[in-house]
């Protein structure tokens, strides 16, 4: 989204010269209108309010200067920030300016946190935070905290990855709960215990200080409260899932009731439905605290036999997938033998 209508706000100007210039300031470009062709085609932009005697020792902002249609333009390598003071040096004069945040700007907010349930197993492995705007992913772990009922922040609760897991449009962040603490008998688990304790209450807090890609913060902290139940030590079992058949010649949804919350990030792209060996097109959704998988077809259901193919990597909230437990005992060979098993449910429409 571009805000090219932003106009200049000059705080003070012309410390070295009395000549006035017409500027247009936007996040992506600075324009000096009616540039006198006899003047040097250069301008320098600095971060912050730089005093005159410090300018020569200050590193300018990276960008390109070019002349076009009687105007001199400067495009920074990355967009300028809103509500920050910049120092512009042009033709021996200094101009300080700020670009205000547009009044209609939709500020960053948390749209959803997965899992959506407020009762979670103590060995929960992943959280997904969905934001309204693309976020600044730098140092992002500073803004996520788990708090216990006493108000203490849980230490070493989140696995900090150097390269954060965020989707391509930078609106969905994946947080791993420290796997070394969630797996039994591992040293972090023995040293610090599980991150969460059954029958205790917690909150996840996303700090209002997190910023979007335009450098604008949230307006208030986002808080989700949840309570912890016993650990989930069993794999999702599709044979116990219930299919509600859609009606023939309709666009009605296929509904799969799973009876336990599934992991938001691993489900939707790991299922397909085939009809006469052709994958049918449509949209998958999760609902009812991720206990129900729903498929909305693009075309009406035809009579016949259908096959639902589940990828083994579909997980429950504890990271147990269809083939193996996340927290498996060394001598348990059952899972090793199950890794090549296909996971298929069939249904027919008459």
């Amino acid at each position: 989204m571009k805000y090219t209508f932003i106009f200049l706000l000059i705080l003070s100007s012309d410390l070295l010269s009395q000549k006035k210039y017409d500027f247009i300031f936007t996040k992506d470009k600075i324009t000096i209108l009616n540039h006198d062709d006899s003047l040097e085609k250069k301008l320098y932009l600095y971060n912050g309010e730089i005093e005159e005697d410090l300018i020569t020792s200050t590193t300018p902002i990276l960008g390109k200067t070019f002349f076009q249609e009687d105007s001199l333009h400067f495009t920074p390598v990355v967009p300028l920030g809103w509500d920050r003071i910049y120092t512009l040096v042009y033709n021996h004069s200094i101009t300080y300016f700020k670009i205000p945040i547009p009044k209609n700007y939709k500020k960053l907010s948390v749209e959803e946190i997965y899992p959506t349930s407020s009762k979670l197993p103590s060995n929960i492995l992943k959280w997904y935070i969905k934001f309204s705007n693309p976020i600044n992913r730098n140092n992002v772990y500073d803004y996520f905290h788990f708090i216990n009922a006493k108000g203490d922040t849980l230490s070493r609760a989140i696995l900090p990855l150097e390269n954060i897991l965020i989707n391509r449009d930078k609106t969905l962040v994946t947080l791993w709960i420290e796997p070394g603490r969630q797996k039994r008998k591992l040293i972090p688990n023995q040293l610090l215990g599980s991150v969460f304790t059954p029958r205790e209450n917690y909150r996840i807090i996303i700090s209002k200080n997190i910023k979007d890609s335009n450098g604008v913060s949230m307006q208030k902290d986002y808080i989700k409260s949840f309570s912890i139940i016993d650990a989930d030590r069993s794999k999702p079992n599709i044979s116990q899932w219930h299919i509600e058949h859609p009606k023939k010649e309709s666009l009605s949804p296929l509904i799969i009731k799973c009876y336990e919350p599934l992991d938001y990030g691993s489900v939707l792209e790991n299922i397909n439905i085939s009809y006469k060996n052709q994958i049918i097109r449509g949209t998958w959704e999760l609902s009812n605290n991720e206990r129900i998988i729903q498929f909305l077809p693009k075309k009406k259901w035809k009579l016949g036999n259908y096959q639902i193919n589940f990828n083994k990597t579909i997980e429950d909230l504890a990271g147990n997938n269809l083939s193996r437990l996340f927290d498996n005992e060394i001598d348990n060979t059952e899972d090793v033998n199950a890794t090549n098993q296909e996971h298929i449910l069939e249904f027919s429409i008459y």
């Binding site: 971060n47 912050g48 590193t59 990276l62 990355v78 920030g81 920050r84 910049y86 450098g215």
Partner: peptide, 12 residues
């Protein structure tokens, strides 16, 4: 951060 015209928390 100065070369990008921003604050330290906006660059990595």
């Amino acid at each position: 951060a100065d070369m990008m015209g921003t604050t330290i928390d906006q660059v990595q």
